[in-house]
């Protein structure tokens, strides 16, 4: 009985040790993976911030005005509006 208990204790100890070792290895591996993902997320977020800022800068009204002016567009005035096909009721507005 005693030797059986001893054997069981030894087997349990070895199994526990192996389990802990495996667990530790897995945790370390996952921690490393997570650290890489966090770093990647941080980098991508930073890039996204920069791109959003650049987009906002490029799309600011003053920039669009300059592009529009280069191509000969002028601000739309109501007197430029022409009702198309006034007799019919359907259809969306169309641009000449």
């Amino acid at each position: 009985m005693k030797s059986t208990l001893t054997v069981l204790a030894v087997v349990l100890s070895i199994a526990s040790f192996a389990g802990m070792l495996r667990l530790k290895t897995d945790v370390e591996s996952l921690a490393g993976k997570r650290a890489r993902l966090v770093a990647e997320h941080s980098r991508l977020r930073e890039e996204k911030q920069v791109l959003e800022a650049e987009l906002a800068h490029l799309a600011q009204p003053a920039t669009l005005h300059r592009f529009a002016a280069k191509r000969g567009y002028v601000p739309l005035a109501t007197t430029m509006l022409v009702p198309m096909n006034p007799e019919a009721g359907g259809g969306d507005g169309m641009v000449e």
Partner: peptide, 24 residues
């Protein structure tokens, strides 16, 4: 030879269409 313009339907004012068309 119409001038550059954005054309749109006047849905809010259906009644004057005929008059506008006549005017144009």
């Amino acid at each position: 030879a119409k001038p550059h313009a954005v054309a749109m339907q006047d849905r809010a004012q259906p009644q004057p269409r005929g008059e506008v068309h006549e005017a144009f």
